[in-house]
């Protein structure tokens, strides 16, 4: 038997206490931790454009934007994620963890598309406060807006061209503006 390594189920409290000492950011999904995927300059540029467009609106409604610096707790999935951007109106806490975002946005490249469109979509939808989940797909230059409605969640996909709305912040954006 040549066993290279083992790891037991990692409790969420232990992840939260230890992750700051790991010198790299990790996401936590029910018992295991994973390195946050590498991001390129296109990714960073889109996050920057989105932040620029949304900051004035976030201030106007007394909420705040966070980009990649805070962990988002998803209780139902027993997960801690680092979303590319989130908007929340909850009070700032001593620990850098957000529980009640109203908007979450992910910029998805080929290496994160599966996680952003599948795992995170399923997880984020369980957050009771969340109104919208925006996925910006780099390769197909597309913005998918997932929105909670009375009948559940629905999604509208926007390509290059006309504007789209983010109701959670009363924002009107365009795909071209995000890829500028």
């Amino acid at each position: 038997m040549t066993l290279v390594g083992t790891s037991r189920w990692l409790p969420p409290e232990e992840f939260l206490a230890n992750e700051p000492q790991w010198n790299r950011r990790c996401e936590y999904v029910n018992g295991a931790a994973f390195d946050v995927a590498k991001r390129d300059s296109v990714h960073d540029r889109i996050v920057e454009n989105l932040t620029k467009a949304l900051t004035p609106l976030a201030e106007k409604c007394n909420g705040r934007l966070d980009t990649s610096g805070v962990k988002l707790r998803v209780e139902a999935a027993n997960a801690y994620y680092y979303p590319d951007l989130l908007f929340t109106c909850e009070e700032r806490r001593a620990d850098p963890v957000v529980y009640a975002p109203e908007l979450v946005a992910e910029v998805a490249a080929a290496n994160t598309l599966g996680v952003d469109m599948r795992e995170k979509l399923a997880a984020y939808r369980t957050i009771p406060w969340l109104k919208e989940y925006l996925v910006i797909q780099i390769d197909s230059r597309q913005a998918d807006v997932w929105r909670r409605s009375a009948k559940g969640w629905n999604c509208v996909m926007y390509g290059v061209g006309g504007p789209f709305r983010l109701e959670s912040l009363g924002a009107t954006l365009s795909v071209d503006q995000l890829f500028d």
Partner: peptide
């Protein structure tokens, strides 16, 4: 060559990692 074996434990799935040899 790398196989991760996730086994059911008392608390949840735990993992063993093999890069040679054999596993049960």
């Amino acid at each position: 060559r790398r196989v991760e074996v996730w086994r059911r434990g008392d608390e949840g799935l735990r993992v063993e990692v093999y890069e040679s040899g054999a596993f049960r």
